[in-house]
Design a binder for these strands. Structure first.
Lengths: 231, 231
DNA sequence: GTATCGCTCGATACACTGTATCGCGAAGAG
DNA sequence: CTCTTCGCGATACAGTGTATCGAGCGATAC
């Protein structure tokens, strides 16, 4: 028995912890934070606080912050519905491309995490599996090549789109508007005459919608695959 | 705080100081650090230390760390030699694709920075200008579409390649080797039979070389452009 | 019922980040 | 020579991920 007065002693922690924890709860909390405030809002302290827990509590469920990010990525992969197995390769790949783009727009942080580390989570694997299955080429190397090219394009295109979106949001207007109206630096650069093509793009290019541009680029890749593989 | 971009602000005059400083010195020091030890080695303290200066000294030349990263990106763009203006669009785009890939392999951090923020530095602009010029389509929207698709593919493909490279380096063997020999998790996943295509890839796929895969994917895109634009 | 052990868990601590602040020292004016 | 001004950069701060280790619990032995 301690000689301290009651008021001096801390309350014993309620061992049945204030809130139960699980990987799912942690990942969902992290995803919500990231959706609302970007990846910067995802710190172990903030995630833990959102669950009424101390930071170190999380280390019982994850070994490192990167693992949490991996889990988040795999969770988003889980949201991506696989293509209809009976669809032809072109329809299937187009479905996958659109699904990935949609997921990335729901979770803008997704694309930032995508290329960073290899994705080996169960949902990621299932996603790759379904994608490979939908092309159904006999030659496995051909299938890999086609899928790889499509995914590379999708990745780059989505990344560009999200980046532009962020820039627009932070300035409050589209890139072209910004450069035309409020970009004195850009104005001056174009005025030097050293960038005639760029100037043409700024002044003559149609500010086309992104979905259309994405589809057009995707069609290049799909057409190319069809040509090379003679299908 | 000024709202101007870095490239719009003049450098401060060099003061009599233990070691003179300049944007170029700072950027070069940062690039060397990043080349040697990855982006994690680029902290303002470390960059400053490499130049025998205190951290806050740098804030006379840059306003924020992100600006330093922007300068680094633009510097790498400067290393990329533009395509021969007399080359046809296909040769020109291929040159650009290979040049970007080569630069990214020299500076592995480049790809991590690429999509993060819009690139408006002089070298970046010159690069886009030259790329647009090399396709030389009459229709500016067609040119943008083609260049955009190629750059998106290059971006995604290089990103995947670098990521795989890092994974290989950290484990000391190729991905296939790793998964075949030391990946008990992967083994178990494949053993479930839920990923037949993936298993086929692991066991039957040829561990092709990356340069070849890059070229193949690039050809898809270029072929697709040719088909769609009838050239 | 009591004493001891072992072990888990999470508060504290540490090294590090980017950058705001403001006291000091030097340059310039009279 | 004195006073003012002003810009530089050392110090300080709020934040990060995570190693450490003492407190507090349950189980075991008597």
């Amino acid at each position: 028995m301690s000689n301290e007065l009651v008021w001096n002693r801390p309350e014993p922690p309620s061992k049945p912890s204030p809130t139960p924890l699980s990987r799912e709860l942690i990942v969902n909390a992290a995803i919500r934070l990231a959706d609302e405030g970007g990846l910067d809002e995802v710190s172990l302290r903030k995630v833990a606080a959102a669950l009424n827990a101390g930071p170190m509590r999380l280390y019982g469920y994850i070994e490192t912050k990167d693992e949490l990010l991996d889990l988040m990525v795999d969770e988003v992969y889980g949201e991506i519905t696989p293509p209809d197995p009976s669809a032809d390769w072109r329809t299937g790949l187009r479905h996958v491309a659109h699904a990935v783009r949609a997921a990335a727009k729901r979770h803008e942080w997704f694309i930032d995490l995508l290329g960073g580390r290899p994705h080996q989570g169960p949902n990621s694997l299932a996603h790759i599996e379904a994608t490979l299955a939908t092309v159904g080429f006999d030659d496995i190397d051909q299938a890999l090549s086609a899928v790889g090219a499509v995914m590379a394009y999708v990745y780059g295109a989505v990344r560009n789109e999200i980046t532009e979106l962020r820039a627009e949001r932070s300035t409050g207007m589209t890139e072209e508007q910004w450069q035309r109206a409020n970009g004195p630096y850009m104005q001056r650069m174009l005025a030097t005459g050293r960038f005639p093509m760029l100037a043409k793009v700024m002044y003559e290019g149609s500010d086309g919608d992104h979905a259309r541009a994405f589809d057009d680029g995707l069609d290049y890749v799909l057409d190319g695959i069809a040509v090379r593989h003679g299908i």
